[in-house]
Design a protein around this nucleic acid. Structure first.
Lengths: 341, 341
DNA sequence: TTGAGCTATGTAAAGGTTTTCATTGCTCAT
DNA sequence: ATGAGCAATGAAAACCTTTACATAGCTCAA
């Protein structure tokens, strides 16, 4: 009783008085069947409430019309907005999306490969910044399906990438500070480990070079992109007593740490120090002072990435293998002209 | 060349020198096969890199081990944290997760039913607060699979619900204000349309009643839970010049609107007005003053909901059909003792 | 008139499992 | 010695499609 036995293609065929092959064609390649027959089929379909069994279809066609998305933290707001774009584009093209939260745990990454190796997903979107363990080049292991990397490019693999142009964005941000009159600009978030940090620092340096400002290595501080790292770097700066007039932070979370630290020291922002973030995550406008930052076109990143993946899936050779979208300068209240030199 | 032909159960059977039935049993019901045979099978599996084809299995078993999650806004931070819980629990039990972003669009909701009717998903988690159009009681339409509602209960359907205890939470929040000495407490976010609002208002009224404070209807203002509604309600209050000493807001977004409005009027918070939120969404700690609020156990909500759904899927009758989790009072800086009466 | 070519349809294979039912060879109680 | 009962396995059906191949009927040019 529970499973009121769904209508199959045979039921439809019987009612329409044709063979199941014809039903299939009427549904999937309407031009191949006579008008009158097609009409009979559609009527029968409506009558039975028939829907194609996706499992049988996938089994036969060897594709599932599903995309697996692997992300280290599904709860990350930066991720979830890109997800909106991914989902929109996928659903528009008849694809469904499967979500895997890896928590940077190699075991979980490997585990999720079962969706690939068992044909449950045709393509892969990676937010992790590396191939899941188990994809390597060694034989016998799961083959890499059509894949697109988002946010973090994959260092050692030849996988198309969609993300924001970090160099350009950081350059624009730095130029904004320079245009306000700042010359002593700190960079908070130096790291050789994270590609994003490396690139944004590169943009920072490019902007300084373009304005003929020599880089002061004492103004470049380590940071892993967390709020705490921003706080720590700022404190460190005061200990060493080498102070900038503006902070360019590798991201908003870091900028938040800087703001917290400066607020705690009772500085008046942005008068005494300017702070610039990157990403424009949701809280950026709620901090005091609200953060001037570079906004990532998150939804668009998602759409582009899915578009690229579906292209690969369709066998097309995509025009470009790296799509860099521009970020947008969002001017709020954490940056002003410097009150000193 | 593209599809290096995956190993099937037949390949394994051939190598192990047994029938495919035995291979299947060795993998799915190990006790049913002799030790020695099982060993041979596992060796053959390792050698070929065989993984069960999920499509074939699903077709045969009439279940996909997939759960469809339908949410109005996948980008909503409140949702994405619950998603973490859902994902964790599902993946622990061998289930995968399919995401659908409905944007409150009936057409999209209906469209996603194809996953159900085509057997691509065994169960359903609804964040939408209503059944998707097309499930109704009318015949010929898709049958409702095992379903659990999260966050928003379903008004007219007999579907288990998992969420926060809104009445209790709002009561605790209000009692906190009362304990600080407030007697004139406004409720921002009255609405008969949204269940969450109705329940939280009920908790507010219960707390007042418990403290023998009569409800002043002029202190209860409409709001749909947006930041803008909080701002508008506050302005409205000043126009009518009926002022509370504290604002209990239906959620953090509303509270943010209240704070923005009060800040704009140059009031000193929390000295002149206390503001209390609900939810503890990520920005709550970054606003100035940081929001005192009720924290929803989001990850746990997700886990419980998935647990309940998998119970239903397993044919068990769950012990309770409504699971209400307690929210936690998070004391920050937006509430203090009143400076007047 | 013939047959080439086309359209519309049907038959049957293939896709890879799980599981029912049947079979075989035991053990052990009678 | 006999047969009941059990453990281990295999053969084959069933799950529901899509599609290659075959067939039948037509049109139309030679």
């Amino acid at each position: 009783m529970k499973h009121q036995k769904l209508a199959t293609i045979e039921d439809v065929a019987a009612i329409a008085g044709v063979s199941i092959a014809t039903v299939s064609r009427a549904l999937n390649a309407p031009t191949k069947v006579a008008d009158e027959t097609r009409r009979r089929v559609t009527t029968a379909v409506a009558q039975t409430g028939y829907t194609t069994n996706a499992m049988a279809r996938s089994l036969r066609m060897r594709r599932s019309n599903m995309i697996l998305i692997l992300a280290p933290d599904v709860g990350d707001p930066n991720f979830s907005n890109i997800l909106v774009g991914l989902e929109t584009e996928a659903s528009k093209r008849g694809y469904g999306i499967l979500i895997g939260n890896t928590q940077n745990d190699p075991a979980r990454e490997t585990d999720y490969l079962r969706f690939i190796s068992s044909n449950q997903a045709d393509g892969l979107i990676l937010f992790t910044g590396h191939l899941p363990y188990g994809f390597g080049s060694e034989g016998g292991e799961t083959r890499l399906p059509p894949t697109v990397a988002v946010n973090e490019p994959l260092p050692n693999a030849d996988v198309p990438f969609v993300g924001v142009d970090n160099i350009e964005g950081a350059r624009v941000a730095t130029e904004h500070l320079i245009a306000q009159g700042h010359r002593r600009i700190a960079f908070i978030g130096h790291s050789t480990a994270k590609a994003v940090n490396v690139l944004r620092e590169r943009g920072y340096r490019a902007a300084l070079a373009g304005a003929n400002i020599t880089v002061d290595p004492r103004l470049i501080l380590d940071g892993d992109g967390t709020t705490e790292s921003g706080r720590a770097a700022t404190e460190h700066m005061f200990v060493r007593d080498v102070l900038p007039t503006a902070f360019l932070c590798v991201n908003d979370a870091t900028a938040l740490g800087v703001v917290i630290s400066l607020n705690a020291r009772k500085y008046d922002l942005p008068r005494q120090f300017s702070v610039m973030g990157f990403d424009d995550i949701s809280f950026a406008s709620f901090v005091t002072p609200s953060l001037t930052t570079m906004k990532q076109p998150r939804v668009k990143i998602g759409e582009k990435a899915m578009d690229l993946l579906l292209m690969l899936l369709g066998g097309e050779q995509p025009p470009e293998t790296e799509i860099l979208l521009r970020s947008e300068l969002i001017v709020r209240n954490s940056v002003s002209r410097p009150d000193r030199n």
